[in-house]
Design a protein around this nucleic acid. Structure first.
Lengths: 333, 333
DNA sequence: TTGTATGCGTTATCAA
DNA sequence: TTGATAACGCATACAA
């Protein structure tokens, strides 16, 4: 149970004051080359590691960022998290990971605790908070990047990175139209998810654009999981057996849908076509392989983190970044 | 850009000293009920949140733990992480997530930074560090739980939670024997992975136990990914086309193997049987569904975190916890 | 190039 | 029940 070495310990041994050691450790100027080397040697010798807590208190900089996601188990967010963490590692940051389970109460608690910990930045994915609360929460942080969510009015130090959800849905539906699908359904996401709302919006727009009547009976809502997708597909297809195409909120839901269709003996895509969203690894594992809207989540994760650190350096940053989806046509549609 | 409220601010308004406020905030005794309520009201009023950095410096307790995994994108670790985080949330802790990519250098850096941040506990999954380094690293932390790794000599404040890897391999191979498989191969994991070593050991033991000659030509090593599993299967089956059963290091590898077998027209399980390890969601998504050794990773994650917080309270804790696998027979074997 | 004094926000300890 | 003082480990600002 040995105590950790401090600046003072190193200073004592080196026969100088803490300040000289501090300068040497932090590679600041004002220390002779000899002295610096001597100090560094001693530091290594006695296994000195700067106490980041103390440093954080003194500088008001913690070199930490908070990463808040609905569920790190969802491959989409797992990839995002990995990209964020890798980039954070490159930049010398550590990340706090917090799950919200899409629960606003838990999200609030998450933001409070991150705020209390003095993180230098916040990464908030798919926030479920109502606008006024969100704005208030987010303004406290010195920098934040939101994924799939934006504030009505541009706010200091917050940048939004959004998947182009409206376009995604349009691409899917248009593809269905082109392939003569007549009864096109949508299994949407949670009602309080902005992405879900946008995709539903794009879904409707596609009908309007093509001048085809839209039947809102063919829209059902599902939780973003395989199980829920499966159950919702049953509900939908029981009520409307003539549906011949489904655009699912995401690939998890799509996998559930696909499984259910297979169970009831539908041929895919002959009897029913399915398009998912996100292109998670599941999409290429399942048979038939899922046609889906593709994003490079890992890259997006890196982008998020890079944007966050750069936002504190540059004065003016873009307030919104839009990421275009790409339709990956595989076997399910 | 408003500054955050401090204890002093609350104290000023309340007309008392910081200590009284501190006691009230921390629900400690020694404050009159009236005063306490008044202080709490003021705190809420001016949106006071304790500065955990300062608190950490003063108490030497940060209410944080470090979670180090090879890859949070691997569904196995994603589930573990989720269990850990959920339990941490319950207990009031926040977690630092760090990936190592199975790189010892990066693992070392991860442990250093966590140590510098003064985490109250460390969760180290599948460490790749050699024994002497590992021991040295881990001894610095006030408490650590390791997953799938143990120290030769029991060490103060470190608890190991291990999957029973030897048994897992034995169960797989025994199942193959019972089903008249004759040419049983093993696609092992990374050489420096303890789990990989244990599973290989169990693989061999199963042959010895059954009194059947073991052919080490039928063991190949693979990285723990789908792609690598796929490539390694090609290598193995090209050299040994007569293999009729494969036990894979984990489900990711097994999925790769399965895909390759399908590509070259093998029927599963008629021509070749495949057993994986871990039972990640992929196992039930792929066709045919994977027969595999099952663990409840989410539960294990919770167990890890619970064990960690309890270890600091109880004087004596078990030094090792062993978790039994269960063979889930599905369609691939 | 090196040193001194001071403060970051909180809690521990001892005194009133 | 409340308060004064010191301490946690480091960095900033200024002085030598």
């Amino acid at each position: 149970v040995k105590k950790r070495a401090t600046l003072a310990d190193v200073a004592d041994i080196a026969g100088v004051t803490m300040m000289t050691v501090s300068r040497a450790i932090n590679h600041k100027s004002g220390v002779s080359a000899n002295m610096r080397q001597k100090i560094l040697d001693i530091a290594k010798e006695i296994d000195y590691q700067p106490n980041q807590i103390a440093r954080g208190l003194a500088t008001n900089q913690t070199m930490t960022v908070g990463l808040v996601v609905p569920d790190n188990t969802n491959p989409f967010f797992a990839q995002i998290a990995r990209g964020v963490e890798d980039q954070a590692y490159e930049s010398g940051y550590n990340i706090f990971l917090i799950n919200t389970s899409e629960d606003t109460h838990r999200e609030l608690k998450a933001l409070d605790s991150l705020w209390g910990r003095g993180v230098d930045g916040l990464i908030l994915c798919s926030s479920r908070l109502p606008n006024h609360q969100l704005k208030k929460q987010v303004e406290r942080f010195s920098a934040t990047v939101m994924l799939n969510r934006e504030l009505k009015i541009p706010t200091r130090n917050v940048i939004s990175i959004n998947l182009h959800d409206v376009r995604a849905a349009q691409l899917a539906v248009t593809y269905f139209f082109e392939h003569k699908r007549r009864r096109i359904a949508h299994i949407s996401g949670p009602a309080n998810s902005i992405s879900a709302q946008k995709r539903l919006e794009g879904f409707k727009i596609a009908f309007t654009t093509a001048n085809i009547p839209f039947d809102d009976q063919l829209v059902e809502s599902s939780a973003p999981t395989i199980e829920s997708g499966h159950d919702t597909a049953r509900k939908l297809l029981t009520a409307h057996p003539d549906v011949d195409a489904i655009y699912a909120f995401n690939d998890l839901v799509a996998v559930g849908v696909l499984k259910y269709c297979l169970e009831i003996g539908k041929r895919i895509p002959e009897d029913i076509a399915i398009i998912g969203n996100d292109d998670i690894p599941h999409a290429t594992i399942i048979q038939p392989k899922l046609t889906t809207l593709h994003y490079n989540q890992y890259y997006i994760g890196q982008l998020i983190m890079r944007t966050l650190v750069e936002s504190s350096m540059k004065a003016a940053s873009p307030t919104t970044i839009l990421i275009e989806p790409e339709l990956y046509i595989r076997e399910s549609a």
